[in-house]
Each structure stands twice: as C-alpha cells, then as structure tokens.
C-alpha cells in the first residue's frame, strides 16, 4: 500500500478537527476525498505532508511510519502536495517555480528530463516560461501548481481543490490533464466539493463529515449512496 492513514486524529490546540480517519491509496489509484466545507479534508492532506502535526494515529508510506518526519523530507518520500489556492511563488517566473519543484536530490538529478515531460503536458507553461507566476490566469496558475508538483517526481500527488474557481472549459481541460497524470502511473488523492465531478474521475472516494469518515467505497457505488446524499444535500 502506497499511503495508509490509521485512525488519524488531529487537533488545532484544544479544538479537535479530525476524528479517527483511516484511508488508503494504492499505487496508481485515483482517490477523492469529499466533504462539505470545514469537514477536515484539507487538514487531512496537510497532516500527510507534515504541515499540521498528528495528535494520534499513524501515517504510513509504503508500510513505514512517517510521523515526526519534517515536512521538507516528505517530498523525497514520493509525496507531492499541491496546496489549496494554488500557492505558486507569485514573484518568481514560471520556469523558476518549476525548477524549485524538483528540489529533493532524486528529483533534481533528473530535473531536465522531467521539465521536458511536464512541458509537453502543459504547453501553455512552456509559452509563458519567463513570465512571473502572478501574471498568469487562475487556470494557468492551477496548471503551474500541478506541474510544479509533478516536478518532484512523486508516486502520490495530493491536490487540494484543483477545480476551485475555474471556468467550465478549463475544468474539462483539467480533467484530461488528470487522466494523463494517471496514465503515467502516479497515484492521485484529491479534494473536491463537486461530488459528481469528483466521482466521475476517481476510482474510489472517501466522504468526511465534521472530521469523521461518513462513508467510503467505489465511485460507482457512492454516486447513488444515501449517506452521500444526506451529507451533501441534507436529505
């Protein structure tokens, strides 16, 4: 198993936000983490990348616990995290953003090859290589954020709300990009609020409600699941 969360509990100070969440992602799988606003989805991803400390429970990558490893070591373990709201480096160029994506040793040694691959996936970024990141449109910034994540040569790409605020035709384009990433064998764990969209892309899904796992399963079975409807539509 590539990634395994075991009874994860997370608190900000005295305020617990994640309660006993267990989930796993296998090599090459596409998994979505669903849930309404404030249900703890981003916190789960931030805990996996070490930005937020674990209170109880365990995080395993390829069977080994990564608890206590500082954030900057986790990229080297094959985990890339594309943060919510893109978070590109606004005053650096597209090219510089991409180069920084391949920071850890292994990625850096193959940086030129990776950048060529990434550029063929995102031709728009090649055209804008020398532009400052903050001059890009929202969709282009999201592509840069994804491309920068891929520069780390991850085995697991975690993406927090990739479709947030994107125009419908960009969403379609982004779906194709995800499909292309999946074809390269990289596993994807992504957060999305649009249930139908997310389940149309993912193999499996987990639904969080107030920091607890409400339901999990294959995308096909979740589409018509009663609990999913209850969580999202209040039915």
């Amino acid at each position: 198993m590539l990634l395994e969360l075991k009874n994860l509990e997370v608190a900000y100070g005295d305020y617990q936000v994640v309660w006993g969440v267990s989930l796993n992602v296998d090599e090459g799988e596409v998994v979505t983490l669903l849930g309404p606003n404030g249900s703890g989805k981003s916190t789960v991803l931030n805990t996996i990348s070490g930005l937020v400390p674990v209170m109880r429970g365990d995080i395993l990558v390829s069977g080994a616990s990564i608890i206590g490893r500082p954030t900057h070591h986790r990229a080297g373990l094959g985990i890339a995290h594309v943060l919510e709201r893109r978070r590109v480096f606004p005053h650096l160029t597209v090219q510089q953003n991409l180069l920084l994506g391949a920071w850890h040793r292994e990625a850096r040694s193959k940086r030129d090859a990776t950048i060529a691959k990434v550029a063929s996936m995102f031709p728009i970024l090649r055209d804008r290589a020398n532009q400052l990141a903050n001059s890009l449109s929202g969709g282009e910034q999201q592509m840069l954020a994804l491309a920068r994540g891929l520069m780390a040569m991850p085995r697991l790409l975690m993406v927090d709300e990739p479709f947030l605020g994107l125009a419908p035709q960009i969403v379609e384009q982004m779906k194709d990009i995800f499909e292309n990433i999946r074809k390269t064998g990289i596993a994807i764990l992504f957060i999305e609020q649009n249930v139908r969209l997310a389940l149309s892309m993912a193999d499996r899904g987990y639904v969080l409600e107030s920091g607890r796992l409400a339901v999990a399963g294959e995308s096909k079975s979740l589409v018509n699941d009663k609990t999913v409807r209850k969580v999202f539509l209040g039915e």
Partner: peptide, 21 residues
C-alpha cells in the same frame, strides 16, 4: 531562489522539500 521561494510562501516551499528552517 529557494530563499525567495521561502519568503513568498514558506508552506509551499516546505512541501516541495525546501528546508525552510
């Protein structure tokens, strides 16, 4: 560049493997 990246967004820099500390 890593210094600039850390100044502009320390969390984004950290998840990419830059030792921000």
């Amino acid at each position: 560049l890593a210094l600039q990246a850390t100044a502009q967004d320390r969390e984004a820099a950290a998840v990419m493997g830059i030792p921000t500390d």
